[in-house]
């Protein structure tokens, strides 16, 4: 038979033999599965892929993959991935993050990664909570969500990462849902295939600290619009979005940032001549 149809096995080849520490029921399992499906669909050799992450539940992903990976410090994954991609443009570089890692401690890097538009795919698993530290509010948490660190809720408006991404210059903006693994895999494929900085927010429920998010299944819907390259239309769309529209919401045509390497490098001893008396 045609081996191409063995998609589940092909995807499984991208998984390492390390077993995730996530809680059973966690949305991140599906995101992991969607990432492997996307890699399989694109036929990427595992050694040509690097997955970079920071700190948090979602940032554990690199160890669960059979690609190259970097599990760095909290909030700096996009910066580390930027250095890697600029030094090694031949690699496919994917960044995995969460709402705390990516939007709070890593907020500034998020802005500048969008602005710089290096050819990266940035997958943020958003569960609106810090899981590794036992349930504190993140920038995307609802203002009235009660918790031990900010009793009664933060009282702060939730951050809208898609709007920020658009305003900052991201070239591809999409939202997926972990309960829609096929759709999420497709978004990741498109994100990787689109040149420049691609931002994919994946709503990924936390069954331990946000059991209410099991209801997201009933809230999400395919966005009732086609992808647009019109930044004004995208801005209106994202500003009025309730956070549950799934799909590709913006695809621009910005040229990715690259560092230019001269094809005719000279030796260090040649540039030393400028100092000669």
């Amino acid at each position: 038979m045609n081996t191409q149809t063995v998609s589940a096995s092909a995807a499984r080849a991208y998984k390492s033999d390390v077993k995730p520490v996530w809680c059973p029921g966690c949305g991140d399992f599906t995101v992991l599965s969607a990432i492997t499906k996307a890699f399989a669909e694109l036929g990427l050799p595992p050694e040509q892929v690097a997955v970079v992450s920071g700190i948090g539940c979602s940032s554990r992903i690199p160890a669960y993959l059979n690609t190259y990976g970097f599990h760095g410090v909290h909030g700096r994954a996009t910066a580390l991935a930027t250095g890697l991609k600029l030094a090694r443009p031949d690699l496919t570089v994917v960044v995995a993050s969460g709402d705390g890692d990516g939007f709070s401690i890593g907020g500034n890097h998020f802005l500048h990664a969008c602005r710089r538009n290096v050819d990266l795919t940035y997958i943020v698993m958003d569960n609106r909570v810090y899981g590794m530290t036992k349930g504190q509010p993140s920038p995307t948490t609802e203002p009235d969500w009660d918790n031990a660190l900010t009793p009664g809720g933060t009282g702060l408006r939730a951050f809208n990462p898609l709007v920020i991404a658009l305003a900052s210059g991201a070239n591809f903006i999409a939202r997926g849902f972990s309960g829609d693994p096929v759709g999420t895999a497709r978004l990741i494929v498109e994100a990787i295939e689109t040149p420049g900085f691609s931002f994919v927010e994946v709503l990924s429920p936390c069954v331990t600290f946000r059991p209410d998010q099991r209801d997201w299944r009933n809230a999400v819907r395919p966005a009732p619009v086609q992808p647009t390259g019109d930044i004004g239309a995208a801005a209106r769309r994202l500003m009025t979005d309730d956070g549950f529209n799934l799909g590709v919401l913006y695809v621009g045509s910005r040229t990715p940032y690259q560092t230019h390497r001269t094809a005719a490098p000279v030796s260090p001893s040649e540039i030393e001549q400028q100092f000669a008396v």
């Binding site: 149809t5 599906t30 669909e41 759709g183 895999a185």
Partner: peptide, 24 residues
């Protein structure tokens, strides 16, 4: 010879392959 189908080209009734137990 089976056709190659991308994950989203399968015509499932729901979001994913029906027999896969819901992981969530």
């Amino acid at each position: 010879e089976l056709p190659h189908l991308s994950p989203w080209e399968y015509r499932w009734l729901d979001d994913e392959a029906p027999e896969a137990a819901s992981i969530g």
